[in-house]
Design a protein around this nucleic acid. Sequence first.
DNA 1: CATCGATGTTGAG
DNA 2: TCAACCTCGATGG
Length: 332
Amino acid sequence: MPEGHSVHRIARQFDRNFVGRAVAASSPQGRFVEGAAVISGRTATQVRAVGKQMFLEFDDDLWLRVHLGMYGAWDFAGEIVVDPTIASANGRMGQTNQRGTDIGEPILDSAGENSLTSIGAPRRARVHVRMSEQTTGLADEGEEWPPPIVGQVRLRLLSETTCADLRGPTACELQTPDEVAATIAKLGPDPLVDDVAEGEERFASVVRRKPTSIGLLLMDQNVVSGIGNVYRAELLFRARQNPHTPGRDVPEEVVRGIWRDWVRLIAIGVETGQMMTMDDLDPDAYRKAMASRDDRHWVYHRAGLPCRVCGTAIVVEEVATRKLYWCPSCQA
DNA sequence: CATCGATGTTGAG
DNA sequence: TCAACCTCGATGG
């Protein structure tokens, strides 16, 4: 589910709540028992997010690599120290609810503003949140500690006060520092990790050499990190770029423009927890756009609906097993 | 209650 | 190109 912005947000949660603390680890589901045993008792020392992957380091030189894939999610419970640079307290991260907002992430209140204090109501909310200066009460009365296991939990990390449950990941494994370096080395630039000017050069030079369509290149994590199906569709629309054009045939300025737009969009995504791609709308239109999932994007998930710019029906195609949405007129 | 689909990736053929 | 993997909310009967 999550594209790059969610993973960076999750990493911040780990930075706030686990780094510097001793951790007990277990695999209630049974599929990561050995790994959990190796982690257990160690202290988390740092966390890194690159693209859609998160790397959590424990002493001594032990790394946990997690990739949430399409269904993975972290559930945080207990006392959650919220990163003040992030707009809300979080329960579940990674998964999304039917409105397309990350559960537990900022919710538009009736005034249409991001509410710092509102906590989304995750289905399994067990979150007892401590905001920067104030402590909220327990989310639920009669809350147990540690929280009961619900469903298939691949990995549970438990500090004295905070619980993080991982379910449904595509990847959850231990790595050596060399393996982490090798994994990261294969990934394309991430605007939140790499120097953005350097990233632009890397991205542009690769794209401009490839016969592969720009639509596929944007989804290729070895070309650029963190973009998924939603951001892909939206970036291409915002650039008015036909997804089928070979990378090498996309004008250099357009390629660079897409990178710069990605730099901007992922920053907004990390700040707000939402995949805001209509950020240039006026406040009224923004509120309307955020009100429902189907109104939040230019083209994503809008097959058959009129293009917001020209009215032409948005097209959906199946490309490499993923849905590709675009406007055949604006992106001719 | 059964089935579908999803913001993803890997590996076999 | 396609199946497999993993989970669960939405959808339909």
